[in-house]
């Protein structure tokens, strides 16, 4: 959207977004050969596929998503993780990076711990399973977690992660962005606060033109004097 210049008009559920010959993509439905918006959002057309990019909505887990979750319960061989979605997500002990004895789950993760994990599978009735077998999966110690609308996550990440690496470079914070709209930040108090502010700015102005510049300016203004950006 940044590159497209003009702001795209929003579409409202029930609005026609495409005629015959176009395929209905995410956020749309077809009826009588025509395509209509199912969600409030911005219309997007790509190779004959019409979709609506939602402006709001809950996180619905998808296989392979990297998410940030909070352990809310533990069983003898699994943990229950809150991933900020309508569905409870269990993490089985065998999917953890540790060798967990039956009944010994509390040694590795406790209720209240925050983890970076991946969605292993989602079945047709949306039963979710998590995994920590990926390389970047870990328990997150220290830092803080902020929540944004999951629909704004792509803007926070940017093209090939450009936006998040910009914030990391300028503030010197370590940042993990989960597809579920949770963002983990770690750095000294001041830079973490500045990074959080920058993320709030992105969330609020997700459709804005020149977002990268606005973020750069905000960080430059808020960053304490006398300390330049550190490499992350």
């Amino acid at each position: 959207m940044q590159s497209s210049g003009a702001l795209r008009p929003i579409v409202i559920p029930g609005e026609a977004v495409g005629g015959p010959g176009l395929k209905p993509g995410p956020g749309t439905y077809s009826e009588g050969g025509r395509v209509f918006a199912a969600q409030l959002g911005i219309r997007d057309e790509h190779e004959g596929l019409v979709s609506v990019i939602p402006l709001n909505g809950r996180y619905i887990p998808q296989r392979g998503d990297a998410v940030i979750g909070e352990v809310v319960d533990q069983g003898p061989s699994h943990w229950l993780v809150d991933i900020h979605s309508p569905y409870p997500a269990p993490l089985h002990a065998t999917e953890s990076p540790w060798r967990v004895e039956f009944g010994d789950t509390a040694r590795y993760l406790k209720v209240g711990d925050v983890i970076m994990c991946h969605v292993l599978s989602v079945d047709e009735i949306k039963r979710v399973q998590l995994t920590m077998q990926e390389r970047e999966a870990r328990r997150l110690n220290g830092g803080m977690v902020i929540e944004i609308s999951p629909t704004k996550v792509p803007r926070v990440i940017g093209k090939q992660g450009s936006m998040v690496s910009l914030i990391m470079d300028l503030t010197g914070c370590r940042i993990y962005v989960g597809q579920n709209g949770r963002i983990w930040l770690d750095g000294d108090d001041r830079s973490a606060a500045v990074a959080a502010l920058a993320i709030r700015l992105i969330e609020e102005r997700a459709q804005a033109v020149g977002l990268t510049e606005a973020v750069r300016e905000l960080i430059a203004r808020e960053q304490p004097r006398g300390r330049g950006p550190r490499p992350s």
Partner: peptide
């Protein structure tokens, strides 16, 4: 409902 981003056929 539309403001909440709930998918629906129409208002």
């Amino acid at each position: 409902l539309a403001d909440a981003g709930v998918p629906m056929r129409d208002l």
